[in-house]
Write a protein that binds this DNA or RNA. Structure first.
Length: 621
RNA sequence: GCCGACGUAGCUCAAUCGGCAGAGCGACCGCCUUGUAAGUGGUAGGUUAUGGGUUCGAUUCCCAUCGUCGGCUCCA
C-alpha cells in the first residue's frame, strides 16, 4: 500500500503529511509583499464590509464598530440586541454570498468630519472613531500618525462604512467559495475591559476554494497536534480539577522528557560558567517589599500565608533569592560575573479565562538564571546569553527564531542613559547573531529593556520561550555592590534570563512541534520489542535486557495480542523503533527493525541496530 | 475577570416531548500462537461535574458554584 511519509515531522499515513518546509519558504517569500498592500488584504477587508452589511440587515438597530483584516481572515465587531448563534452565522454567510453575487462596486469618498458625523449620526462607535481621526489618528502600532488623516467612507450596495480602505473594485472580486465564517466571540470595544463587550464575528477569506480548503486543513492539523490532546493520548501530563486549574501533573513519560532536557541543560550550564543554586518557594513579605514586587507585581501574586504571625508569599520570580545568595558575601570585581542558575518553580496568578494547557499556567518552573556583572562585562554577557539560548533551543530541535527587542516603556526606573546603553547592547547582540528581529517600542519591563526570543514551530506558529532582561531596579533596591579595583563599592549590572522559558510552556511547544514524535534522544520509550508469539518472549526479554544495558529505554510488549496490534499501538504511541522478533530473528540472533515512519529496514543484528540508534541519537533526530 | 458555547463510563460520543442511562474504543478475564497499523468471546465500569429548585418522576427545565473550550493585541 502506498504510504505518505514525512521523515522530518513524523507524520503518518492516517494523518496525511504536509511539506512544512516548502510551506515556510513560500510564506517567507510572500512576506516580500506587505500584507496591507496585498490582494488578500483587500479581499478580506471587503469581505468584512459585506459581512457587516449582512449583519446589519439582520439587526437594523445594531451598532457596528471596526472590522479589519487579520492573519488568515478578518473580523467585525458589533453591538447587537441578542447573542449570535452558530445558526445565525450560516444565515449571514448565505446572505454574504448573495451580496457578493450582486457585483456591487466599492466606492470611496473623502469628506469633512461634520458630514461624516451626519452619515453616522446613529452609530456612536463610528462617531467616536471620527473624533479620533480628527485628533490625528493612530497607525496600526498605536503610535500617533505624523499627518492628520483624511476621513473617508466606502460604499457598496446600500452599505456605507467609515473606512480608510483599500478595497477590491467590486464585491464580485470576493470568491464566494473561498469565504467562511468561523466563530463568534466576545471582544471589548478597543480591547479595553472597562469598555462595552461587543460581539465579534471571525471569518476567513482566500482567493480560491483550494486555499480555503488548505487553511481549514491546517486548522485540523493544528488540532491533531494539540498538546492537550497528545498529552492525554501519549500519557505525558494532565491537569486535575481536584488539584486546580493551571497546575500541571507530569506523568512518568512527560517527566522522563523533562528530566532528559533538564539534565542536558544542566550540564550545558556548567560548561558555560553557570553555578547551580536552589531556593525556597516562599519568602517573607519584607523581601517582596524590598524587591518592589508588592508594588509592581502584586496582581500576579497569590495572597500571603500566615506563618507565626508573619506574612509569606509564594514566589512569582526567583530573583530576590538569587540576590540574597549574591549578597551573602562581599564581592570583588575579580569574582564577577556571577551566574546563578536554578530550575525555579514560581506561582503567578493568571485570570481563569487565559489558562491554556501547558502554555499558560499558574505554577511553572523556569530555567532561570541571574547574571551579576561589572558594567564593562555586560555586553559580553548578553551576547553569551543569547548564544547559549540559541544553542539550547537548537539542541532540542527548535531552529526557527525571531527576536523582539523591547525598549523603554512609559513607566520605568533607572537612568535613561543606562537604558539606552543597555538597549544598544541588546541590539548589537541580536545583530551579531544574525536573527531576524523587530523592535517592540515601549515593550520593556519597567525595570529594564529585554530581548524576547520567539520560536516558530512546525506549523509556523510563534511561541515565546526565551527572554533576556536587564534589571536596573533590583540592584538598586537591594543595594548590590562589588568592590572595584579602586577599593570602592560599585553597583553591578544584573541580567535575568530564561532560555526554554518555563519547562511547561516549552514542553507544550515541543509536543506540538514534533506532533508527539519526539527525537529519539528525548523519546520516553525509544524501542519496543514485539514478540510474534509466546515462544519468542524469552528471547525478547534477553534482547531488551541487552539494549537497556547499552543505555536504551526499551520495553517488551508481552501482551497477549497479535503482532499487528502491537505494531499499531507502538505507531500510535510514536515509539521510534519497533523490534519484531520471531523464529527467524531468534535463529539469526537478530531483530527486525521497523521505524515509526513506516520504513521497514528489516532484520539486523543487535549490534547494527544499536549503532543505528546511536547515530540517530547523536544527530538529535 | 468578561462574552459565548459546553460538562453523560478512562477516551470519543448516543439517549424522541421530562418516563428503566447506551455504543464503540480502552481496561480486566479467557480462547487463538500469530510475520509489519486493530484476531476473537466474555466481564466490570455511572450519585449524568457539584449543590439546590420545579415535578408523581430530571441526563433533559430553572438557579448557583466548579471546571473545560473559543475569543477579548493587531484601530475606520
Amino acid at each position: 500500500m502506498a504510504r505518505v511519509l514525512c521523515f522530518n515531522h513524523g507524520c503518518f499515513e492516517d494523518e496525511i503529511c504536509i511539506d512544512f518546509t516548502r510551506k515556510e519558504i513560500e510564506m517567507a517569500e510572500k512576506k516580500e509583499e506587505r500584507y496591507e498592500e496585498s490582494d488578500l488584504y483587500r479581499i478580506r477587508h471587503s469581505a468584512a464590509h459585506v459581512m457587516a452589511q449582512a449583519v446589519l440587515e439582520m439587526f437594523p438597530e445594531g451598532k457596528y464598530t471596526i472590522g479589519p483584516p487579520i492573519e488568515d481572515g478578518f473580523y467585525y465587531d458589533f453591538e447587537l440586541p441578542r447573542s449570535l448563534t452558530p445558526d445565525d452565522l450560516e444565515v449571514i454567510e448565505k446572505r454574504m454570498r448573495q451580496i457578493i453575487a450582486g457585483d456591487h462596486a466599492f466606492e470611496k469618498q473623502t469628506l469633512p468630519a461634520d458630514e461624516a458625523r451626519r452619515i453616522f449620526k446613529d452609530q456612536p462607535y463610528k462617531l467616536e472613531l471620527i473624533e479620533g481621526l480628527e485628533q490625528g489618528g493612530y497607525d496600526e502600532y498605536g503610535q500617533p500618525l505624523a499627518e492628520k488623516p483624511e476621513i473617508s467612507i466606502y460604499t457598496h450596495d446600500k452599505f456605507v462604512d467609515l473606512c480608510r480602505g483599500p478595497h477590491v473594485e467590486s464585491t464580485r472580486k470576493i470568491n464566494p467559495a473561498a469565504i467562511k465564517l468561523m466563530s463568534v466571540a466576545g471582544a471589548y470595544w478597543r480591547g479595553d475591559e472597562h469598555k462595552p463587550m461587543l460581539q465579534r464575528i471571525y471569518g476567513t477569506a482566500w482567493k480560491s476554494a483550494e486555499e480555503l480548503e488548505q487553511y481549514l486543513w491546517r486548522l485540523e492539523e493544528a488540532k491533531r497536534r494539540d498538546h492537550r490532546r497528545l498529552g492525554r493520548e501519549l500519557d505525558l501530563f494532565s491537569v486535575s480539577e481536584e488539584v486546580g486549574p493551571g497546575l500541571i501533573l507530569w506523568h512518568p513519560k512527560g517527566a522522563m522528557i523533562r528530566v532528559l532536557v533538564e539534565s542536558f541543560s544542566q550540564r550545558a550550564h556548567l560548561e558555560n560558567g553557570y553555578e547551580w543554586v536552589f531556593s525556597p518557594h516562599i519568602g517573607r513579605a519584607h523581601l517582596w517589599e524590598t524587591s518592589g514586587h508588592l508594588d509592581f507585581y502584586q496582581e500576579n501574586m497569590y495572597s500571603p500565608m500566615d506563618i507565626e504571625g508573619e506574612a509569606y508569599y509564594a514566589k512569582p520570580m526567583n530573583c530576590p533569592f538569587h540576590i540574597q545568595i549574591y549578597k551573602s558575601h562581599t564581592r570583588s570585581y575579580r569574582d564577577l560575573p556571577k551566574r546563578y542558575a536554578e530550575y525555579g518553580t514560581v506561582y503567578r496568578y493568571e485570570r481563569s479565562g487565559v489558562l491554556h494547557g501547558l502554555t499558560r499556567v499558574r505554577g511553572f518552573t523556569q530555567d532561570d538564571a541571574h547574571i551579576f556583572c561589572r558594567p564593562d562585562q555586560v555586553e559580553e554577557e548578553i551576547s553569551r546569553a543569547l548564544d547559549f539560548s540559541l544553542y539550547i533551543l537548537r539542541s532540542v530541535g527548535l531552529k526557527d527564531f525571531k527576536a523582539y527587542l523591547a525598549t523603554i516603556p512609559e513607566k520605568y526606573v533607572g537612568d535613561p542613559a543606562d537604558w539606552d546603553k543597555a538597549t544598544q547592547a541588546l541590539k548589537r547582540a541580536i545583530e551579531a547573531h544574525n536573527i531576524p528581529y523587530v523592535v517592540d517600542q515601549g515593550g520593556g519591563a519597567f525595570y529594564g529593556p529585554k530581548i524576547d526570543l520567539k520560536v516558530n514551530d512546525a506549523l509556523a506558529r510563534e511561541w515565546q520561550l526565551s527572554t533576556i532582561q536587564f534589571d536596573f531596579n533590583l540592584s538598586e533596591r537591594f543595594n548590590l555592590e562589588f568592590i572595584g579595583e579602586d577599593g570602592q563599592p560599585h553597583r553591578p549590572y544584573m541580567v535575568h534570563r530564561a532560555l526554554l522559558g518555563s519547562m511547561e510552556r516549552f514542553f507544550g511547544v515541543l509536543i506540538e512541534h514534533f506532533a508527539g514524535a519526539f527525537p529519539v534522544w528525548l523519546s520516553p520509550v525509544q524501542a519496543v520489542v514485539i514478540p510474534i508469539a509466546d515462544r519468542h518472549l524469552a528471547y525478547s526479554r534477553e534482547v531488551a535486557g541487552k539494549l537497556k544495558g547499552a543505555g536504551l529505554r526499551v520495553e517488551v510488549d508481552d501482551r497477549n495480542e497479535r503482532m499487528n496490534a502491537k505494531i499499531r499501538d507502538a505507531q500510535t504511541q510514536k515509539i521510534p523503533y519497533m523490534l519484531v522478533v520471531g523464529d527467524k530473528e531468534i535463529e539469526l540472533g537478530a531483530v527486525a527493525l521497523r521505524l515509526r515512519s513506516g520504513e521497514n529496514p528489516g532484520a539486523m543484528s543487535l549490534q547494527d541496530f544499536l549503532e543505528r540508534a546511536q547515530q540517530d541519537i547523536d544527530k538529535g533526530d
